[in-house]
């Protein structure tokens, strides 16, 4: 398996109960996983654990047979090679689109950086916007910049936290199709979080239903939704 998550447990400092209880999941290379669950079920927390923003109290995560978390190891987020698109995008307000996208390309020379910038801008269809600042973009454009920024360093895994929640309803469907196209085009393994079944149906190869920090069902959308 490309990604193996085993027995992940986690509790926020000020909460009584375990937020994540025994999360186990294997993911094939290139697969698109959707985590579906109600608000507060722990979806974002799972992504934070995978990306390294939180430290699990136990459990293992391996990517391509490399351990990134277990009882003796904790790889910092910057060492994991995992891209993440945040719920509210978190685009750096003091940098242009170009600056944001190039931010993660630290080990490249200038020419390579520019080349990669053009590639991902092409991918998300935002070539003319490269000199704009985030506040000069629409919500949908911001989201695409966030996606381009996460993809630019060629991560081995892409995490998306409610990628459509900040968009207007009619825009959501359009963007969903576009996102699907982009992800398929790059062939990147991804996990995206949503609380909308339609998102899962439209995008995911497999759906994970999370309730109260526990997986209660896994399978392809047809199986799960019947």
């Amino acid at each position: 398996m490309f990604i193996e998550i085993k027995g992940l447990k986690f509790k926020y400092k000020n909460s009584q109960e375990e937020t994540i209880k025994d999360f186990t999941l294997d993911i094939k290379k290139g697969e698109i996983i959707s985590i579906l669950g109600q608000s507060g079920s722990g979806k974002s927390t799972v992504l934070r654990l995978v990306s390294g923003l939180e430290v699990p109290s136990s459990g293992t995560i391996k990517i391509d047979n490399r351990v990134i978390v277990d009882n003796n190891t904790f790889l910092f987020p910057e060492k994991r090679g995992i891209g993440m698109v945040f719920q509210d995008y978190a685009l750096f307000p003091h940098m242009t689109v170009e600056g944001n996208i190039k931010f993660g390309l630290k080990n490249m020379d200038k020419k390579e950086k520019n080349k990669r910038l053009e590639e991902v801008l092409d991918l998300v269809n935002l070539k003319e916007f490269k000199d704009r600042y985030p506040y000069e973009l629409s919500g949908g454009q911001q989201q695409r910049v966030a996606l381009a920024r996460a993809l630019a360093p060629k991560p081995s895994l892409l995490l998306l936290d409610e990628p459509f929640s900040n968009l207007d309803a009619d825009l959501q469907i359009e963007i969903r199709e576009e996102l699907k196209k982009i992800i398929k085009q790059t062939g990147i393994t991804s996990i995206f979080v949503t609380h909308d079944r339609d998102d899962s149906k439209a995008l995911a190869d497999r759906v994970v239903i999370l309730e109260n920090g526990q997986i209660i069902n896994v399978g392809n959308p047809k199986e799960v939704f019947g």
Partner: peptide, 24 residues
């Protein structure tokens, strides 16, 4: 959130501090 975004983009705490936190 900007700190976290920067970490997932491959920057260490110190790099993040200089490039993201400080200007903000």
């Amino acid at each position: 959130k900007f700190f976290e975004a920067s970490r997932t983009l491959g920057m260490t705490t110190t790099e993040t501090f200089l490039k993201v936190d400080l200007p903000m």
